[in-house]
Design a protein around this nucleic acid. Structure first.
Lengths: 164, 164
DNA sequence: CTATCTTTTCAGCGACGACTAAAGTCGATC
DNA sequence: GATCGACTTTAGTCGTCGCTGAAAAGATAG
C-alpha cells in the first residue's frame, strides 16, 4: 500500500498497462493478460515478481497468470528464477530480448515469399497471369533481403550501449 | 469448365489459395475469405472478376464476398470497376499496392514507441525502474527511424521497373 | 412503374479462445 | 508420511467473430 509502484492502484498506471496490452493484442495476437504482465513487469519496482503478485496486481486468476507466463517464457521475453525452499519463483522481463520478438514477428510476414515463389513455379511464370504474382513476389523477395542488414545495423549502431 | 484457371478445381491451386489465406489470417488478422479472394485474384485469368464469380469459385456466400471485398477495398489492395448496363462490377487486385499494405502493418508495430515514451514521462525517467522501459523505448525509436529509409530504398532500388 | 439483376444488411448459428474457479499435482519441510 | 505452499490442469462460462442464407435495398432497362 505504501509503495505506489507495487500495485496498479494509480489509475494512470493501470490505464497505461491496458494500452500496452491492447497493442500486443493487436500486433502480436497476444492475450490481454499476457500483455498486462509484460507491461507491468516493465515498470514495477522491484523488477522481479511472483505469480501470486502478478495475479493480485492485475486482478487475474492464478490459472491465467500461469498460462500466460508460460506463453511469455516461450517467446523468451520474460525469464523465471527459482529460489531455495518453498518460495515462489520470480519472473522478470528480459528487455534485451525485445528486438528478437519484433524480428520474429516481421520474419513471419516475409515468409510469404516462399508461397509466392511456389505459386510462380506452379502457375508457369509467363503471361499476364503470372505478372501480378511476380510483382508481389519481387517485393517480398526484396524485403526478406533487407531484413538481415536491418538487424545487423541494430547490433552495430542502434543498440545504445553494449553490456559485457 | 474448359478453363482450368477459371475455377479452383485444380486441387493444387485451391490448396495454394488456402495457404495464402492462412498466412493473411495469421499476419494481417484477415478473415479467411478475404485472403482467399486476394489469392484468387492474384492468379486468375482473366484478372477481373465479379462478386458472383468469386463467390462461386471460392464456395463462399454472396454476403461474405460482399463484406470481404469491401474490407480489401478499404485496405486499397483491390479495386472495383463498374460497367454500363445491369452488369456486375468487376474486382481486380492492385498488386502495386502491396508494399503499402506491409508498410502499414509494420507501422502499427512501431507505434508502441509513443506508448513507451508516454510511460517514460509518466514514471519519471531515472533509476532501475525506468531502465527496462528505456531499453525497449530506444529500440522502437531506432526502428521507427529506420522505416522511412527502408521504404525510400524500395522506391529507388527495390522496385523492379518503373511504369509510366 | 415493373421486372430483373446486383449488392448490402442482418439475424442466427457454430466455433474458437480467453478467462475463471476449483481440483489436482508436485516438492520441500517438519 | 503428513502438511503446506506453489503451480498446473481441467471443466465450464462468456463473449466475439466469421460465415451463411434470406430478406431488403439499389440500380438499370424496358
Amino acid at each position: 500500500m505504501a509503495e505506489y509502484a507495487q500495485r496498479t492502484d494509480r489509475p494512470a498506471m493501470s490505464e497505461w498497462i491496458e494500452q500496452m496490452a491492447a497493442h500486443f493484442e493487436a500486433t502480436e495476437a497476444m492475450p490481454l493478460i499476457a500483455g498486462r504482465i509484460l507491461a507491468f513487469l516493465l515498470i514495477c519496482d522491484p523488477p522481479e515478481r511472483t505469480a501470486a503478485e502478478l495475479s493480485h496486481a492485475l486482478s487475474a486468476s492464478t490459472g491465467s497468470v500461469s498460462t500466460n507466463v508460460r506463453l511469455l517464457m516461450r517467446l523468451g521475453i520474460i525469464s523465471r528464477t527459482t529460489r531455495q525452499g518453498r518460495e515462489a519463483a520470480l519472473y522478470r522481463v528480459e528487455e534485451d530480448r525485445w528486438p528478437h520478438l519484433v524480428r520474429h514477428r516481421m520474419q513471419r510476414v516475409t515468409e510469404l515469399e516462399e508461397l509466392t515463389e511456389a505459386g510462380l513455379r506452379m502457375f508457369s511464370g509467363q503471361g499476364e497471369r503470372a505478372r501480378r504474382l511476380r510483382t508481389v513476389h519481387e517485393f517480398y523477395r526484396w524485403l526478406s533481403g533487407e531484413m538481415p542488414e536491418l538487424w545487423k545495423r541494430w547490433e552495430r549502431e542502434g543498440r545504445p550501449k553494449l553490456r559485457f
